[in-house]
Every structure is written in C-alpha cells, then in structure tokens.
Nucleic acid binder design. Sequence first.
RNA 1: CGGAGCGUAGCGCAGCCUGGUAGCGCAUCUGGUUUGGGACCAGAGGGUCGUGUGUUCGAAUCACACCGCUCCGACCA
Length: 508
Amino acid sequence: MQRALSVSRDRFADWYQAVVREADMAETSPVRGAMVIKPWGWGVWEQIQGELDRRIKATGHENAYFPLFIPLSFIAKEAEHVEGFAKEMAVVTHHRLKNIDGKLVPDPDAKLEEPLVVRPTSETIIGDAFSRWIKSHRDLPLLINQWANVVRWEMRPRLFLRTTEFLWQEGHTAHATVQDAVEETHRMLEVYRAFSEDVLAMPVIAGEKPENERFPGAVNTYSIEAMMQDGKALQAGTSHFLGTHFAEAQNIKFQNDAGGMDFCNTTSWGVSTRLIGGVIMTHGDDDGLRLPPAIAPRQIVVVPMLRDKPEDAEVLAYCEHLVKALNGLTVFGQPVRALLDIKKIKSAEKRWNWVRKGAPLIVEVGPRDAAGGNVTYMRRDDLRDGDKVKSIVKPRVDFIEGAVQLLAEIQAGMYADAKARLDNNIKRDITSWDGLTAYFGDDEDSFKGWVRVAWGKPTGADLEAIGQKLKTLKLTIRNAPGDQPKEFAACIFSGKPGVEEVLIGRAY
RNA sequence: CGGAGCGUAGCGCAGCCUGGUAGCGCAUCUGGUUUGGGACCAGAGGGUCGUGUGUUCGAAUCACACCGCUCCGACCA
C-alpha cells in the first residue's frame, strides 16, 4: 500500500524523525542539539501556549519575565541544585571578541568578573526577585509564571524530546505555609493532567516521583507520564514542592501575622516543547502526524480542485464562502481555524502534504461539488478503508452545521484510542523481580508497556541499589500514581510488606 | 566521553570488495497531453562523492587522521 510516509512505526525512532521532517515541524540547525522550529511546528506550540496560558491564568497566576543570564554565584546557593545542573550548563565568560592573528577569539581583556550561566531553569534568579518582593504574609501567595527558553547541554539531542535549547513555561510560587505550597503543587499537576488529556488528547498518569528521580533541590516531585506508541514512557510535565530549600538559600522571608519572620515554602512546575514530541508519538501513524483538533494550527483545510479553466473562479468563490462560514464558528471555546489552500501546486500534492501534517479535516472541492452544493472531505483520524482513502460527500450546509461536532468527535476519539492503549498496557500481575526480568528481559525491542507493582518505598542506598538493578533492564520507576489502593502486595524487590504501588517502564 | 553503524543531488539509495573521472527512484524546472483526484510523454537543471593528508599516471573506490549524523551506554524536561 502506498502511504504518505516512507517509514512505518515498526522502526519507531526512524519513523519519529520522518514525521518531524515530513510534517514540516522542525529541522536540525548548525548548532548541535538546537533545532529550528518551522511554521507548522511553531503553530502547534502557539496553540499549546495559548490554551495552557489561559489555564495558568485561570488558577490565579500572572506572567512575568526574568533574565536569560544567571550569575554563577546564584546557582551555587542551593547545594543539590548545583550538583543536578552543573554538568549541563552553558557559561558566558567574555563580553567581547577580538581579532588575534586573523582569528576572532574572546578578548582576554573582556573577561567577566563573575561568569554568567545561561538559565537551565530559573529558580535562583526568580528566587532572588522573590526575596525582594516579599515582605509580609499579605504578599503571599506570590504566583508567577514565565514563558521562556532554557539551555541544558544534553549529550544526545532528539528533536522536540531533548534539545540543548528548549522552550517552556516555568511557574514559580511562594506560600506562607507548607499546606498552601503542597496544594499549589498538586493544583498545577492537575492543570497539566487535564491539559494533556483534554487538549493534547494524550492520557497520562499523574503521580509522585521516587526520591532518586526528584528535581535537584525539591522535597517532592510529581509528574504526568504518557505512554508512547512504542510502549515507552514520556515524562510530560513536572510539579515540584520545594519546601524552604530555596527560600533558605536565597533568603525569601516574610513577616507572619504574629510579627515573627518565616521562610516561604516555594513550588515550581513546567512543561516544554517536549509535549510536541509526545503528541507525535501518541497520535502519529504511518501516513504521518495526526493532530488533535484542539491544537491543530489549521483544523479544516479546504483544497480547491483547480484546472486552469474559467470555472476555477466559481470553485474558488464557493470555497471562500465555505471557509468564511467555518471561521465564524466556535470550537473548544476558540474560533474555528479553517484555511483555503490556494498555493500553486497540484491538488493531489496538497492533499498528501496536509495528511502528513495531520490536519484533522481535509476538504476537497471540485466543480461538481460546487455545482451540486456539496463538499468532499476526509477525516485524518479515520483516513483509510483498507488501501483506499475514505472520502465523504456531504451538502455544504450540512458540513458547516456539523463541523464543530465533528471536530469535537475527532478530539474525543483520538483521546479514547490513546486511553485504551494506556489502560490495556499496564501489566498488574507481576509480583517478583524474576517476573519482572522475565517480562522485560526476553526481547529488548518489542512493545512492553508498563508494569504496576507494589514496593516498600525504600530510600537512600536501598533505593539506589534498586535503581541500578532496574537499569540492567533499561527500566526506571516512573511514578507512584495518585490513585493508590488500600492494601498492597509484597514489595517486588525485597519481599517485605508493600506500602505503595509504582509504575515501572522504559522511558525517553 | 566509550561501543557499533553510516556520510554519494532536496529526500531515499546504488556504485567501493576488484581504482579509469558519477548513476537510479522520488522531488524540482520547461513544453505538451491529461483531469473527481498521489497522472502520462519528452526534455532540462542540480553533486568540492563529509574534510584533509597520503599511495598512485589516475581515488567516490585503497590507507591514515579529523569532522558530522544515527543507534546503544553515561546525562536528562
């Protein structure tokens, strides 16, 4: 069968790269690990930003912006934080270049007194501002978000999933009490869960990270974990309760209502352009990308069948009327995004380009449709019947009237499919280390999904040892899901009584 | 940074073993024929064969070094 993509999902890594390229999302750049995000990929990010920003503001947060450069001494203030990020930091040491023997080099006379790091995350520079902004318990809670780029010098970049520079939002909040801060941490985890499921149609499991997977400097880290089509886990968002670690390191204090001085409890939380990688690996198929309508930059693309003949004008006028009517509709609380594609390329090619890009509805209109008052359309979520592409003919009025419903139906269907995959591939009947080894050890490459097992929640060196053991199977503990049962089986690592259930799987 | 593989036209690849001066498919451009759908015919454009050094009368092909990419480790949103 002829597919729109030359690689299929059985070569998942190659397939992923093919989708990113063929859907015209992004490309590599001359700077290793840094990507160029092309208009279609950027359009998806804009939709993600727009909707998530509304939700962040709806929970009481305000946007602000902090510097890209952070004084080295700031990073050094929180011990665990330094250790966690030291190995992947870009450092600015000079502020001028000089031509020496025909070569442009950093001017030795322009060395900075104190080196600046390019932010890998902004706890420290924002904490510094917080220490000046907060005086009284009346200033709390302080709820700030920033949309920014950050840099982490990664060894093995992968477009969208792990790039040296990436885009994200990072929320930073300060609270008077532990309880307030913990509630905030959970509130934002829930915002991420709902956003991922409702908007990205990407089901996730929200839960707490084990101690060894915590954010450097956090008291607790929570994550949402999504299952990709190869069964691997993608950490799609994190929310951290930081306790008073950063407040103590940076002197973020307030005067309480009894007149005494207390340290703030702080939180931070973020999601990044990695979400786009998650959408690709959750919804893509062998014809390319499939975008959930809620984030598709173009939800309905109208392709006129033009033939360089006089009747083209009628077809175009008919299409313009159609697109105008569609753009006047509202779906998911936003105006419908419909496009009339009048590029001067062959219609058949337009169709396949939009298939690869994952536009949810592709409408083709020829002279006969125009004359009969019809449209012919394809659903990207249900593209083929065997080898044949499914084309549906409908009166134009009916299509316009049903368009919002149809987009909602596509969104819901994509979620349901992904949800079924997640639910059906969490294995719950493994009760021992041997069972785990047998399940994951037999074939490295096949689809495994995750397992959910009971454990004794060890800490310190015991946990470290388990981590090492799991590593031999390329496994990690993803999180301890929020919905825990009342009773637990024995710990699969120690055989002692279990106290918690955790998800284990391979991860990106 | 360690292990493996690969760098030949925009993309996918052949040619390399056995050195003789570069080819295929798709894409692109032009002309024509088509037209309810990924069309056909004819022609055309496009390549420092990753970079450098060496061997040789002659290197995409052999040798060495370097660079880059992909996968597997270490690191990670």
